[in-house]
Nucleic acid binder design. Structure first.
Lengths: 168, 168
DNA sequence: GGGAATTGATTTCATAAGAAACTAATTGTG
DNA sequence: CACAATTAGTTTCTTATGAAATCAATTCCC
């Protein structure tokens, strides 16, 4: 019933069994959720921001004024989510929006001084969470983690675009 | 608040800047979302299952009959989510539920033969997605990834339970 | 120059999610 | 034994999400 297993890739045998605790997509999902929650505690508890709101502030804080579309690209969020996040950030005075005179479809967003102050308070806190997260890793492991993630990011770049083949 | 950082840890200077493309929590979140979507395509497109439904089937398929509570533990999902997933799996005949005679609060869940057949079809497909995801990594990198994730999993075990200190 | 197609952004609508309240059964404790 | 506390699981209620439709401005291109 069982055939010859070999190599680091799942063997034919293993292909009949899915152990969630060893399955990288599942582990990645659980880990990311935990980390996301830990980071979210910082800005939600202390500043009443949602994740999309914080992400929007994060890119505006880092790169300065930009359009909603650029926020979408930088944050990997859906445009609807960004649109709603911006609406709330406008409502509580953390962000400004002005229509781009060169292309009146575009709205240029930027942090208000108050938004910038909030941003400056949050940054060290969320960096501390990252430091905490990585604190058990050696220098080498950190380097490798970065390298491995880079590879995985590349591989998944267009959400495994090659898979789309099967759509037709 | 924190003491002097040094070496490979973020420096004081860096602590004023948050580059999302280098920030591990953000990268982890984006990566996990992409991978999750890729895996979800397999079971949603071909079998009309939601993520909670598939996760529930995955643990039942791997470990056999268990209570909803054990499903919650094994899948890292909220009990509400599991409850709803089970309701739908019951409705379309992939899972059975019988009250535990020893403790009539408990409901013991198991896959139906049909559920088991679906499970057997999905497993090789989602394993293929994992193989694809990891295909650019060397054997060493795979080992290191496993090791690093294990450390991060430990570190985040109780969602950074230590952070709860600040709640009071 | 003027409609067709495209692009930036918002709104609508249906579904999913989770916190909190709830029901029912069991266990612990006086 | 009885009743308070706990545990398993479901329901309710509010909010978040994203696909699709929509609106508005711009660009294509004949």
């Amino acid at each position: 019933m069982k055939s010859i297993p070999a190599g680091p890739l799942p063997s034919v045998d293993e292909a009949r069994t899915l152990d969630l605790e060893r399955y990288v997509p599942f582990r990645l999902s659980v880990l990311a959720n935990r980390v996301t929650r830990a980071v979210a505690r910082v800005y939600s508890r202390n500043f009443r921001l949602s994740a999309p709101e914080w992400r929007t502030m994060a890119v505006l804080g880092r790169y300065g004024a930009m359009t909603a579309n650029t926020v979408v690209e930088q944050t990997a969020m859906d445009k609807v989510r960004v649109s709603r996040a911006v609406a709330r950030l406008l409502a509580n005075g953390r962000v400004t929006r002005r229509t781009d005179p060169d292309d009146r479809r575009r709205a240029i967003l930027d942090l208000t001084p108050e938004g910038r102050a909030t941003y400056a308070k949050i940054v060290p806190m969320v960096l501390a969470v990252e430091r905490d997260l990585l604190s058990d890793l050696t220098g080498e492991e950190r380097t490798l983690l970065d390298q491995i993630m880079r590879k995985l990011e590349q591989r998944t770049a267009a959400d495994f675009a090659a898979e789309d083949d099967t759509e037709f």
